[in-house]
Design a protein around this nucleic acid. Structure first.
Length: 122
DNA sequence: ACCGTGACGGTAT
DNA sequence: TATACCGCCACGG
């Protein structure tokens, strides 16, 4: 580092948001994943909150399947009376993911649910 | 620089 | 199953 710039160690870690985008894109259609799962899969264990921030910052223009990301307990992360909540619920329903009460059945729609469906299918 | 907030999560009660 | 607590950390005031 010739110039007196802040060294920052040459190898710098890959931008967190990039890995997160990749992890979200990897969630199969009709399936869901928790913020924590996405974080872990992005190589950022324990950074669930960051996933939320990144998704919010990404916005619609990013074309990410953000609706497939929910809380670890199966609930949507938005207030039930918010527009965002309704939109997410609508998008999930369009993929066959329905809310059982206030939450999604993770056992049925969890990560890689398509594989499970294949095992159970006739 | 301190502090509250939040698209969260794991554990204990 | 539901609450309570605490850890986490980027941001904004």
């Amino acid at each position: 580092m010739a110039s007196g710039k802040t060294a920052t160690t040459v190898s710098a870690v890959p931008p967190p948001h990039a890995a997160i985008h990749r992890a979200v894109l990897a969630i199969p259609r009709g399936c869901v994943a928790s913020y924590g799962e996405v974080a872990a899969r992005a190589g950022l264990p324990g950074r669930a909150r960051l996933v939320g921030r990144v998704l919010a910052a990404a916005g619609e223009a990013a074309r990410l399947p953000w609706h497939r990301v929910l809380r670890a307990n199966g609930q949507l992360a938005f207030p039930p009376d918010s527009a965002a909540f309704r939109e997410q619920k609508r998008r999930l329903a369009a993929e066959g993911v329905i809310l059982r009460g206030t939450r999604v059945d993770l056992g049925r729609h969890g990560w890689q649910c398509n594989l499970d469906a294949e095992l159970w299918a006739p």
